[in-house]
Design a protein around this nucleic acid. Structure first.
Length: 377
DNA sequence: AATTCGGGGCA
DNA sequence: TGCCCAGAATT
């Protein structure tokens, strides 16, 4: 059974524009010789990664989730540390979510970490702790979608599933010289790859394509002269490397926030988000910039001392947020929790020893601010 | 089909 | 600074 049956419905021919040039290999994307050249190129120039030499289902699963929307160099160190902390599924399933999120700190897209944690418990309960080797079962695991299921099946189980990530998609788009890439092109490309993937080494084929996209067929300034697929590449034939794929513009929303880091006798007040964006992470209480005056005055009435911390910019997905943090050292004994601190629904708040801050998962920019706290205050 | 995700790398 | 990234989930 091919891999396209479940995840991808075959579509009708449709009326998309034909490629501007009919290549000699319009049926097979690339020739059999080029596949061999690709594999040869991979064995000669491939980069070794920590997850590459021992591709167990667990290691492939974790690495593939880490690599979702994440450049390889950003994931390597987290993967190494993760395997020390959670060497197997049972250890991961027994860990608490806070520790899992802490291990993920800095990688972003934290729902990935929560999904891995949920997935480990699901695998423990429903599959006796063994990662299943079928597409239909893998796809049920939280955080595993079409790409990751295919990656696990090909890399860890040696099943002939091609993968379609940003690298492979870019290679396909350039081979066909398509100025626009539509959803149905994914299905078309996967069908083509299914006829090319070697059944004795599907993982090598997939890794070779992905590393080719990473090393030679880069988004900007690809090195076509070294590419094993250049003969079939219509983008190279047409000299359109600078135009395909076209850059996508994105819109950024801006906002400004004042952070009030309340401190009292060796502790600081943090809040944990339990819903929506940043779920499970700890934050410094904040208010929209400009609304902090009444709060500061109320706090300084209790003879608080206010230190200005370094201004920061927090970039995440569609947001650019300027942060204006202040350390508010309270002199009175009470450690009440002001109501404005709980700005989001279901927020928690807690006074935390400064010496223990390290174990609380928090977005990177908040980590930097917390590290700015002076030793004595 | 479009948007969101509380990151970081790279030219 | 803008665009991209070994995508998935949600709307």
């Amino acid at each position: 059974m091919t891999s396209s049956g479940r995840s991808l419905k075959l579509t009708q021919p449709g009326k998309r524009p034909v490629p501007m040039i009919e290549s000699s290999s319009s049926e097979t994307l690339v020739s059999g010789d080029e596949v061999k050249a690709l594999i040869h190129w991979f064995h000669q120039y491939a980069i070794d990664y920590p997850w590459g030499d021992n591709p167990t289902p667990y290691r492939v699963w974790i690495s593939e989730i880490m690599l979702q929307q994440t450049v390889v160099s950003a994931a390597i160190e987290h993967f190494i540390q993760w395997m020390k902390l959670f060497p197997d599924i049972m250890t991961l399933a027994r860990a608490d979510e806070q520790a899992v999120l802490k291990a993920w700190e800095g990688l972003g897209y934290y729902s990935r970490a929560r999904n891995i944690h949920k997935g480990a418990r699901y695998i423990t309960d429903s599959h006796s702790g063994i990662i299943p080797g079928s597409y239909d079962e893998l796809i049920k695991i939280p955080g595993i979608g079409d790409y990751t299921a295919r990656a696990i099946l090909s890399l860890a189980f040696s099943q002939a599933f091609p993968v379609l990530d940003a690298n492979v998609r870019r290679i396909g788009q350039r081979l066909l010289a398509l100025r626009e890439w539509q959803v149905r092109d994914d299905k078309r490309l996967l069908i083509q790859l299914e006829s090319l993937i070697p059944h004795d080494s599907p993982g090598v084929f997939n890794c070779a394509l992905m590393q080719l996209g990473q090393i030679l067929c880069r988004v900007r300034s690809p090195e076509c002269s070294l590419c094993p697929l250049s003969k079939s590449c219509q983008t190279r034939t047409l000299g359109l490397q600078g135009e395909i794929p076209a850059a996508k513009k994105r819109k950024i929303k801006e906002k400004e926030s004042t952070l009030l880091l309340l401190a009292s006798r060796g502790t600081v007040l943090l809040t944990r988000r339990n819903k929506g964006l940043g779920k499970g992470l700890w934050f410094i209480p904040s208010v929209p910039r400009g609304t902090e005056q009444p709060l500061l005055e109320a706090l300084t009435e209790g003879t608080a001392e206010v230190l200005t911390l370094q201004e920061r910019v927090h970039l995440y997905t569609t947001w650019k947020e300027r942060l204006f943090p202040f350390l508010v050292v309270l002199k009175d004994v009470s450690r009440d929790i002001p109501s404005w601190v709980l700005s989001h629904e279901d927020d928690d708040a807690a006074w935390i020893q400064v010496s223990e801050l390290d174990s609380y998962p928090t977005p990177s920019v908040y980590r930097k601010i917390l590290e700015e706290i002076p030793p004595l205050f």
